[in-house]
């Protein structure tokens, strides 16, 4: 589980998890199940280790889905808190990582949909210009610009498949959609990305 979690992390995080900070020394090598058991019994260092291990991916994935740094922080924070609150009834035989990612990605999807509705509400306050959902400074990366073209469901499957490295079958289970739908969203998303990035390069 840890090895798989590490596969999807950048090198700096990988080192952090491997070496362990002062706070997580001794807990970094423990399995998620052992940490969950300790966290259920109230051990703060276990919660700290779970946070250290899983927060970066939650935050990163949320950011790529919603394209808003502040919203991504809120979503990842809410997802982790929701998981903490439900930890006492979490079945330790199940893997923790997909459970956390399912919470975060579904919240990110909900947020992105709600934001498109809220923009209409903002319009009721004509004294303030509607908030730009994507801050220009965050669009430096060409990929991020291309991802913004996708609809939120397509972005979510791209992030789950190519950042968090789930199989289409696992994504279907996470999002509770048919596997064929996952495959078609992936195909359309990849075609759109290729087109957008190709146009950028021309």
């Amino acid at each position: 589980m840890l090895a798989r979690a590490c596969m999807s992390q950048p090198a700096s995080l990988l080192n952090q998890v491997r070496l362990g900070s002062a706070a997580v020394t001794g807990t970094a090598r423990r399995s998620d199940a052992a940490l969950v058991r300790a966290a259920q019994r109230g051990h703060a260092d276990a919660v700290e280790a779970l946070f250290e291990r899983h927060w970066p991916a939650l935050h990163h994935a949320a950011f790529l889905v919603v394209h808003d740094g502040s919203a991504a922080e809120d979503i990842a924070q809410e997802a982790f808190l929701a998981a903490l609150r439900a930890l006492h009834r979490f079945d330790r035989r199940r893997p923790l990582r997909p459970w956390l990612h399912r919470i975060a990605v579904n919240r990110a999807i909900d947020h992105a949909r709600a934001r498109s509705l809220r923009r209409e509400v903002d319009a009721d306050l004509p004294d303030l210009a509607a908030a730009s959902p994507v801050a220009p400074a965050e669009l430096d990366d060409k990929l991020l610009v291309a991802l913004a073209v996708l609809d939120v469901d397509q972005r979510a499957v791209i992030v789950l498949r190519h950042l968090l490295e789930y199989t289409p079958g696992e994504i279907a289970a996470l999002l509770e959609i048919p596997r064929g739908t996952v495959n078609s969203r992936l195909r359309r998303a990849l075609d759109t990305l290729a087109r957008e990035l190709g146009e950028e390069e021309r």
């Binding site: 919660v47 946070f51 924070q77 609150r85 991020l144």
Partner: peptide
């Protein structure tokens, strides 16, 4: 995708860590 990181990643992590810590302190242990 791995290179496209959220802004203020370190600060966001520390803010979230403080919130998670406070939330856990407020929860009854099983």
């Amino acid at each position: 995708l791995a290179r496209t990181r959220p802004p203020d990643e370190v600060e966001a992590r520390e803010r979230a860590r403080a919130v998670a810590r406070a939330a856990h302190e407020g929860m009854p242990a099983r």
